[in-house]
């Protein structure tokens, strides 16, 4: 039998989805950093995490994105978004004083206490394009959690609040289980925080 008739197949990549997911991870990271500064509820939620805590969000498998030798040559805003060189991932760090900071996508020298891992690029796409709510995605095993489960719940709750801030009701209504009423979150607060978080996330952080 001629085995060459059945060649080995190395599957390709989905660059567009990689790009989208990479950017979204960056936005999520920066938005959380800002929201923790400007909103009490998010701050209180994230205060439940221990200090000196590193959180990682990434798309599995990490090794599918080898550290290219020219990673350092690229401008930092490219690598920060988390594209290509380091795989699609982002790190959030809570320091000793309890400040949350987005610390880029370079995994070197960072040890994650909690990793939220999307099981595949398609899973990340489903979640980050709001086709599945966070809870549904968790139910469907679109992401797994490595580390303490309670911490991941805290993180998901904070993320839910930030989503309500950032996205119009039509979209965030899909992403959270119960959209907060006016009595829980006033329109004023919502829109004001939406503007502030967007501006600061893309500028000073």
């Amino acid at each position: 039998m001629n085995i060459n008739k059945y060649p080995e197949i190395v599957p390709g990549r989905k660059f567009l989805k990689e790009f989208y997911v990479g950017i979204m991870l960056w936005v999520v990271g920066r938005a959380l950093q800002v929201a923790a500064k400007v909103d009490k509820e998010v701050k209180a939620e994230l205060a439940k995490l221990p200090n000196n805590f590193t959180l990682r969000m990434m798309v599995a498998p990490e090794k599918a994105f080898p550290l290219f030798f020219y990673a350092k040559l690229l401008p930092s805003f490219v690598t920060d978004i988390g594209l290509l060189p380091y795989g699609i991932q982002m790190f959030l760090h809570k320091d000793k004083e309890g400040n949350i900071k987005y610390i880029g996508a370079d995994p070197k020298g960072k040890k994650a206490d909690l990793s939220v891992i999307f099981t595949s690029i398609e899973a990340a796409w489903l979640v980050l394009s709001f086709q599945e709510s966070t809870a549904t995605a968790y139910m469907h095993g679109r992401f797994v959690v490595e580390g303490d489960l309670p911490h991941s719940l805290t993180f998901v709750r904070a993320l839910d609040i930030v989503e309500v801030f950032l996205l119009p009701k039509i979209i965030s209504g899909l992403a959270v289980k119960r959209y907060p009423k006016w009595s829980e979150m006033s329109l004023m607060r919502k829109f004001w925080k939406r503007i502030v978080i967007y501006i600061r996330a893309f500028t000073i952080g």
Binding site: I3, Y6, P7, E8, I9, P11, E18, P61, A64, I121
Partner: peptide
């Protein structure tokens, strides 16, 4: 089918069809 393996570490050893 092959496309669904994109961005994974899986290599298909061959498709015997």
């Amino acid at each position: 089918f092959i496309k669904t393996f994109s961005n994974s570490m899986v290599v298909l050893g061959g498709i015997y069809d």
